[in-house]
Design a protein around this nucleic acid. Structure first.
Ligand SMILES: [Mn+2]
Ligand SMILES: [Mn+2]
Ligand SMILES: [Zn+2]
Ligand SMILES: [Zn+2]
Lengths: 161, 161
DNA sequence: GCACAAATGAAATCGAAATTCATTTGCAAT
DNA sequence: ATTGCAAATGAATTTCGATTTCATTTGTGC
């Protein structure tokens, strides 16, 4: 680790060491804020921008990559394991993963056919997870409190679920 | 169109009419700024927030959906044609599309298996398009001017492109 | 016409990402 | 061990797209 950085021309500092190890402890889909919080548990003095810069660095040296689902916060995902896709639950805002090898193979073929050189694949399913489905079914049974329809509800007609 | 909105409880205004038709003229992957510019060509007085709100409205009534590639700008894509994926070229920043029915089928199966109710699929390939590949090959032949390596290049080892 | 909710436009706000800058620090060469 | 200096740090600031606020205007049903 230290070596990987050194050979790339980066210095090792206590902050960097802390940030890197905290990131790998947290593991999956880490946001800057989450990592910052984790790091501050150990060292109150580390700055936000340092955490941010080191997260970028972790990406630059190829140990993580950005994941962007469109909710406004960038998350950072270790690139240890095989290509995988994300299931993102709009209710509980949790990520689930699935093996996407088959999907990526298919996509590679598509890219080839167009003379496109692929460098990254994004495979995401947006929806509602099993738990949240169960919960909302229960809520429905108990009946929703008699509030009137919101603008959004009007716009989308009947709620899809 | 006017009817679609009316039945959903929205009013028709000159601005809205202009914005809607401008959007459908532009077609694919339209950003707020692009649409705003287009609209202002016709009517200087239309406000940015009106364009923004109507773009949201177009989505809410199901005529478009947001596309987010992670470059920081949200784009809006008509939902006329079949499910499709995007090829995004990091060089020329252009989108290309491909039919993703097979891919989506595969993904649906995955979601099912996990008890996940899918509501949207994102299938993206990030890379370099045919044209840009050709161009960069030519550039290489002519040799790059002798500037020193940038930080980013150091970080990523050999430049990928 | 009238009432009133919906829509508009300008300006303000929000928030994550990114940058600036003065200071400190790692580290390689003496 | 000293020293030179680029790299790294932390606080503050800036950026910039997205979103909200609010006073005013407008569309629609009566
Ligand atoms: Mn992941
Ligand atoms: Mn598209
Ligand atoms: Zn959930
Ligand atoms: Zn290109």
């Amino acid at each position: 680790m230290k070596e990987l950085l050194k050979t790339k021309g980066f210095k090792m500092t206590p902050q960097r060491e802390l940030i890197f190890s905290a990131f790998f402890e947290l593991g999956e889909h880490v946001s800057v804020d989450e990592l910052y919080a984790k790091v501050r548990e150990v060292d109150e003095s580390v700055g936000y921008s340092t955490v941010w810069r080191n997260l970028k660095l972790i990406c630059r040296v190829g140990l993580a990559e950005e994941v962007n689902i469109g909710d406004g916060v960038t998350r950072y995902d270790r690139v240890t394991h095989d290509p995988h896709g994300h299931l993102y639950c709009r209710e509980c805002k949790q990520f689930f993963e699935f093996d996407s090898e088959a999907v990526v193979d298919l996509m590679s073929a598509v890219a080839d056919r167009q003379g496109f050189r692929p460098e990254g694949f994004k495979v995401e399913i947006d929806g509602v997870c099993r738990q949240c489905l169960r919960k909302s079914k229960k809520d429905n049974r108990n009946g929703r409190s008699g509030r009137s329809r919101t603008d959004a509800e009007k716009a989308s007609g009947q709620a899809k679920g």
